[in-house]
């Protein structure tokens, strides 16, 4: 993980134009809405996954916390928001807050233990936390519905104005607005002192400790923030699909989120978006074309990226220009 360099990220704009990235993002989202009007459910799923991968980028890409258990916070957010909708109110926005708080609370509590470990041990601990959550949700059948899933979620209109429709138009825009706001906040955070300090800890915890940074507390804070965002993603999924199943805690979800992040490139927020979109699109198309052997294609893609674009797909433009101009 020491292959990244500590360069100032403050001046990161695409081609020097401020907010060009955001503009492209909005244009793509609007374009997708009109190009694929019958695939809005799938597009919404991509957006929710982007949010989960962004949370992983904060935890892993910024702070360097290796985790394969981000589904623990995602699932807890989903169940919290689902239960809140069933038992308290179907208003979406308070549900989001509940989901985010639940995810952050779990991340904080488990983080107190987890952030003392490193490397493989840390990865195993994060997996163990997600597995325990999975089993608790499975066993607490009266509360969560167990293997049948949590049913009976009825959502009220967003902010009392926009009713959820069958085609998923409201869901699409609702999810996008949430993802976009979180994206802007994360972008802000990346340049804020906290973000810089997390990058420093990623590069060298010892040096950061030596210059007086409270490394352990910063890591717990980053993990908690990431958990809150993952919980938010889970809450969105619960509200949009109106169902929470045990799958939200599955190891595959954590692993796929990690693959998407590394595929796109860690530590850069656009990498999380690009990786997720490409992985999920290839997955979707390959699974539709060949339901039995799509995994082969995914495997080839993953290997290809590792060997030819070790810094992730977000690095593709730089790699291409270098190729065209000749290696300098």
């Amino acid at each position: 993980m020491s292959d990244t360099t500590l360069t100032p990220k403050r001046t990161r704009t695409i081609a020097g134009i401020p907010f060009l990235g955001e503009a492209i993002l909005i244009a793509v989202v609007i374009g997708a809405y009109f190009l694929f009007p019958y695939n809005l459910a799938f597009l919404t799923r991509i957006l929710i996954m982007v949010l989960l991968v962004l949370s992983l980028d904060l935890v892993l890409g910024f702070a360097g916390i290796a985790t394969l258990g981000q589904a623990a916070m995602y699932g807890t957010g989903a169940y919290a928001a689902g239960l809140f909708a069933v038992h308290v109110t179907g208003a979406p926005l308070p549900g989001l807050v509940v989901g985010a708080v639940a995810g952050a609370a779990l991340a904080f509590l488990s983080g107190l233990v987890l952030m003392r470990a490193k490397g493989l041990t840390l990865i195993m601990l994060t997996i163990a936390v997600a597995s325990i959550c999975h089993e608790i949700a499975n066993k607490a059948r009266d509360v969560t519905g167990g293997a049948d899933g949590l049913r009976g979620i009825r959502m009220e209109p967003v902010a009392g104005l926009f009713e959820f429709d069958f085609i998923g138009k409201t869901a699409y825009w609702y999810v996008f607005v949430v993802v976009f706001v979180v994206f802007l906040l994360l972008k802000r955070l990346a340049n804020a002192p906290l973000g810089q300090s997390l990058r420093g800890i990623h590069e060298s915890p010892e040096r950061m400790a030596a210059i007086g940074a409270p490394v352990y507390r910063r890591l717990v804070l980053a993990y908690t923030l990431g958990g809150g965002i993952a919980g938010l993603a889970g809450a969105l999924a619960a509200q949009v699909t109106q169902l929470v199943s045990l799958e939200v805690y599955s190891f595959n979800l954590s692993a796929e989120a990690l693959i998407m992040l590394i595929l796109g490139g860690t530590g850069r927020l656009y990498g999380a978006i690009i990786g997720t979109v490409i992985f999920m699109t290839v997955h979707h198309v390959a699974a539709a074309a060949d339901p039995f052997n799509w995994l082969f294609l995914i495997g080839l893609m993953v290997l290809g990226v590792v060997f030819f674009l070790p810094k992730g797909l977000a690095h593709l433009p730089t790699a291409l220009t270098r190729l065209v101009r000749g290696r300098t």
Partner: peptide
Amino acid sequence: FGDLQQVLATIGLTFLMIAT
């Protein structure tokens, strides 16, 4: 490779084995 690239590469190999 770095840790994350190793994870990605070996998971890609796993996928190929499973698919085969």
